[in-house]
Simulated assay, not measured.
Amino acid sequence: MATTIPESEVEITAVRSQGAGGQNVNKVASAIHLRFDIQRSSLPQEHKERLLALRDQRISRDGVLVIKAQTHRSQELNRAEAWGRLQELVESVARPPKVRRPTRPTLASRVRRLQSKKMRSEAKLLRRREDPAQ
């Protein structure tokens, strides 16, 4: 199920690349900021809700997703990279989440857990006996 985003819903802005100290690296506006308003998009409502529920620092409180791309010196490559990242994010949200049912631990894992707890408590007792401060 391929969810495509119309180009009319995405705003792409060319900006100057930022260096390590915040200075402008080159005078060419090769970096791209891609803005995508989740609330106003034509995505299905459940996809919008999943996107807004993501813990992603690129999504602002008002539901605007900003993807920045500045790794390439060419504006076209940065544009393609940002667009690809947006499509990837929307595709990941479009997949239905896995329903996990609670499972009971196996007998072997319960035995291992009890043994390790017993070993830890025995080691603790030995340390207490060896410690002259107590």
Results as ranks from 00 to 15, higher is better:
Asn24Lys: 15
Ile38His: 05
Lys48Ile: 03
Glu130Ala: 13
Lys27His: 15
Ala80Tyr: 01
Ala31Asn: 00
Leu51Ala: 09
Ser92Cys: 04
Lys118Pro: 06
Arg129His: 09
Leu107Cys: 06
Gln23Trp: 08
Arg127Leu: 05
Ala29Glu: 11
Gly22Thr: 01
Arg112Met: 10
Ile67Phe: 00
Leu54His: 06
Ala29Leu: 15
Trp83Phe: 04
Ile12Cys: 03
Ser60Tyr: 05
Ala133Asp: 12
Pro44Arg: 12
Thr106Asp: 07
Arg55Phe: 03
Lys118Asn: 11
Gly19Ser: 12
Lys98Pro: 12
Thr4His: 09
Thr71Asn: 09
Leu43Cys: 08
Pro132Gly: 00
Ala31Arg: 01
Thr4Gly: 12
Asp56Lys: 03
Glu11Asn: 14
Gln39Lys: 15
His47Asn: 15
Gln18Ser: 14
Pro132Val: 00
Pro105Thr: 04
Pro96Met: 01
Arg95Ala: 12
Lys27Arg: 15
Lys124Val: 03
Gln75Phe: 01
Asp56Thr: 07
Ala69Leu: 00
Ala20Met: 13
Leu86Pro: 03
Arg110Asn: 05
Arg50Ser: 02
Ala31Ser: 06
Ala94Arg: 01
Thr71Cys: 07
Leu51Asn: 04
Ser109Ile: 01
Gly22Gln: 02
Gln87Ile: 09
Gln115Tyr: 07
Glu49Phe: 01
Lys68Met: 00
Leu43Trp: 01
Leu107Pro: 08
Val111Glu: 08
Leu43Val: 07
Met119Pro: 06
Thr106Gly: 07
Asp131Met: 05
Val111Ala: 12
Ile59His: 04
Gly21Cys: 13
Lys118Arg: 12
Ile59Leu: 06
Ala133Ser: 14
Arg85Ile: 03
Arg110Thr: 05
Gln134Lys: 11
Arg61Ala: 11
Ile12Glu: 04
Arg104Ile: 07
Leu77Met: 12
Ser8Gln: 11
Ser116Glu: 12
Leu89Thr: 01
Arg79Lys: 07
Glu81Cys: 02
Ile12Gly: 01
Ala123Asn: 14
Arg55Gly: 12
Glu11Phe: 11
Arg120Cys: 06
Ser60Arg: 03
Val25Gly: 09
Arg104Pro: 02
Leu126Thr: 08
Arg112Ser: 11
Lys117Ala: 13
Leu77Pro: 00
Ile67Ser: 01
Asn26Cys: 13
